[in-house]
Amino acid sequence: MNYEHITCEIDGRLMIVTLNRPDRLNAYTGQMGAEIADAFERADGDDNVRAIIVTGAGRAFCAGADVSGGAASFDTSGQHGAGVFASPKPGGGRFVEAIFNCRKPSIAAINGGAVGVGITMTLPMDIRIATKGAKIGFIFARRGLVPEAGSAWFLPKLVGLPQALRWCLSGRTFDADEARQGGLVSEVVEPAELLGRAKEIAREMTEATSAVAVALTRQMLWRFSGAPAPFELLEIDKPMSIERGGHADVREGVQAFLEKRAPSFPGKVSQDMPSQYPWWHGEKNVAE
Results as ranks from 00 to 15, higher is better:
I107T: 07
I119A: 10
V115M: 10
R103A: 09
M125W: 04
F100D: 15
A98V: 07
V117N: 14
I107R: 08
V115E: 01
R103H: 12
P105R: 11
I107S: 07
N101G: 13
N111E: 08
I110S: 02
C102T: 05
T122D: 11
G118W: 03
T122R: 11
D126N: 08
M125P: 06
D126M: 05
T122A: 14
A109E: 07
F100Y: 15
G116K: 02
A114H: 02
A109S: 06
M121F: 12
P105H: 10
I107D: 04
E97N: 12
N111H: 05
I107Q: 08
C102L: 07
P105N: 01
A109H: 07
G118D: 05
I99V: 11
P105I: 12
M125C: 13
G116Q: 04
P124R: 06
N111T: 12
N101L: 12
L123K: 02
E97D: 13
T120N: 06
V117Q: 14
I110C: 05
N101K: 13
V115A: 10
V115N: 07
M125A: 13
V117A: 15
P105A: 08
G116W: 05
C102R: 06
T120S: 12
V96M: 06
V96T: 10
T120F: 11
M121Y: 12
P105V: 11
F100T: 15
R103F: 12
I99A: 04
A108S: 14
I110D: 00
M121P: 04
A114S: 10
N111V: 06
V96F: 03
N111C: 13
R128F: 11
G113P: 14
D126Y: 04
D126W: 03
P105W: 12
V115Q: 01
K104V: 13
P124W: 00
I127E: 07
K104Y: 06
T120W: 10
G112E: 02
V96H: 00
A108H: 01
R128L: 15
R128H: 15
K104Q: 10
G116R: 00
A109T: 06
I127C: 07
S106P: 02
P124D: 07
D126L: 00
A98T: 04
M121C: 11
N111A: 11
I110P: 02
G116V: 09
A108W: 03
G116M: 04
A109D: 06
F100I: 14
R103K: 14
M121N: 08
T120A: 04
G113C: 15
C102P: 05
G118S: 06
A108E: 00
I110V: 13
T122E: 08
T120K: 01
N101Y: 12
M125F: 09
L123D: 03
V115I: 14
T122F: 12
M121R: 04
A98P: 03
A109R: 11
T120M: 02
A114Y: 01
S106D: 04
V115T: 13
M125K: 09
N111Q: 05
R128K: 15
S106A: 12
A109W: 03
A114M: 08
I127V: 12
D126I: 09
P124S: 07
I127S: 01
